[in-house]
Design a protein around this nucleic acid. Structure first.
Lengths: 140, 140
DNA sequence: ATTATTGCAAAGACTTTGCAACTCC
DNA sequence: GGAGTTGCAAAGTCTTTGCAATAAT
């Protein structure tokens, strides 16, 4: 995702395009490891040493409100962010803070079929996400 | 779950049995709505007005470490707890803080079957939880 | 008697807020 | 020019920590 694309995403939501917003959205996009606000601020400071921490938080919240990024649930109390918006699941390491995306169209279809037949009483499903806990077998 | 059961759970883990620990474990068990630490402390103070907030946090952490309760992941940064330990899923309200348990053996079987055939590269699954986001249609 | 746990208060981590100065459209 | 955004610092919220006093085994 290049700068022009980022500008357009912001504009498309009626948000003013500022260097800080570009930097934050770019950072969340580039840092694919579901970064914390702290990590995002640190990354941005390479190019924008003066960005305030409060600004990063404000921008992240605004981007979430405007559905340009998402929050990721974790067991810990530190919020993490994700720039991938189409439906996907997460692989969580049982032993570290690592979180990876998991895409599986076939699984999504299976779940849609399943819940078409099976009704949850008093509940209308909008979205289903899997949290898959386990062990990464590679370099982790 | 009565007091004796609670005492036994604590003993079974080699934990000293104190009134505070009994109260915390009992509270998480009774409050089935995935309470926050704050809510748990408030509940306990009905009978133990002097319990310290720090103590509640320490005990919750110890219970989690000893797998007597679990943390529940949320989009918010406040931790919530659950005394139900066997595998289950969660229904999240898209508009409020409500979280309900969802049990579905058939679904669990479906997922087991699915992932027996379909391998996730470099990952060994230990547990799968669904986060089902949507709208509660009852009194909410 | 020994070791762990509690209460308290202070510190810590993460996040939000208020507001004047500044930018974007 | 006007509305929205930024930087800064202070405040807020949730959680953890250190330690002397206390309670459990």
């Amino acid at each position: 995702m290049n700068i022009t694309e980022i500008r357009n995403k912001l504009k498309g939501r009626g948000l003013k395009v500022t260097p800080q917003r570009i930097a934050v959205l770019e950072a969340v996009t580039i840092l694919k490891d579901h970064p914390t606000a702290e990590r995002i601020a640190e990354y941005i400071r390479k190019d924008h040493p003066d960005i305030a921490t409060g600004t990063v938080y404000k921008i992240l919240e605004k981007l979430v409100d405007n559905k340009l990024i998402m929050k990721v649930k974790t067991d810990k109390d530190i919020m993490r962010y994700d720039a991938i918006l189409y439906n996907h699941h997460h692989l969580y390491s049982a032993q570290s803070e690592r979180i990876e995306n998991y895409f599986d169209e076939e699984l999504d279809q299976l779940l849609r079929d399943y819940f078409e037949k099976k009704d949850i009483p008093d509940f209308r499903i909008e979205e289903i996400k899997l949290q898959i806990m386990g062990k990464f077998l590679d370099k982790e």
